[in-house]
Simulated scan of single mutants.
Amino acid sequence: MTLPPQSFGSAGEHRLQQQLGTAERAARFYDQQVRACLTPEMRDFIGRRTMVFLATADSRGECDASFRAGPPGFVHVLDDRTLAYPEFRGNGVLASAGNMLENPHLGMLFVDFTHHHVGLHVNGVARLYGDTDLRSFHPTLPADAAPGGRSPEMWVHLTVEEAYIHCSKYIPHLEPAPRPTGHDAARPKDAHYFTGLTTPHADEGPAVDTSEDPARAGALLPSRSNG
Rank of each mutant, 00 (worst) to 15 (best):
D58I: 03
L54R: 01
T132G: 08
H121D: 05
T132W: 10
R68E: 04
R35D: 08
G107H: 00
N99M: 06
R89L: 08
E62S: 14
V125I: 15
G92M: 06
R81Y: 03
I46Q: 09
H116P: 00
D79K: 02
R68G: 03
E41W: 04
A126L: 09
R135N: 09
G124S: 13
V34M: 12
G107A: 12
D133P: 07
E13W: 12
H116L: 13
H14V: 07
L101E: 09
A11C: 06
V75N: 10
L101S: 10
D64S: 12
N103P: 12
V93H: 11
D133N: 13
H105M: 11
Q32L: 15
A69T: 04
R15N: 11
F8V: 09
E102F: 12
V118H: 06
R25C: 03
C63I: 14
V75T: 14
D133W: 07
S10G: 14
H14W: 11
A23E: 09
P142E: 03
R28C: 04
T22R: 10
F113N: 03
P72C: 00
E87T: 02
D112N: 11
T22E: 05
H138E: 08
E87I: 00
P147A: 05
D112V: 07
R150L: 09
V75W: 07
F8D: 01
H117A: 05
D144W: 06
D64I: 03
A69C: 09
